[in-house]
Amino acid sequence: MATTEEVQKLAALARIRIEDKELEKFTSEFDAILAYVGQLEKLDVSGEREMKPPLRNMMRLDSESNAVGANTEKMVEQFPASKNNALVVKQIISHD
């Protein structure tokens, strides 16, 4: 059984907030889903190795790139806040 504290902790990890009035509902739904998913316990996969696909290089070779600034305007337009084509974010290192 998941507790409301555990759900709060997961929410904090996932950078979301579950409002207090919704917490109980979320916790009980979470439990119901885990109970369903828990069926997997009954499945015996002891003979199975986890399959890793054979590795191959999927990276493209270096080649001509986009011209500098070709997409800047389009992308900056999507920034919530920008200054001189740079993304504005909060200061996270304090000077004091």
Partner: peptide, 24 residues
Amino acid sequence: RRILLGTFVLSSGYIDAYYHKAEK
């Protein structure tokens, strides 16, 4: 809901029981 569930099944301590088992 699904973000929470995903965060749970990938968290250390549960990843073997859920995620790795599901992959198998």
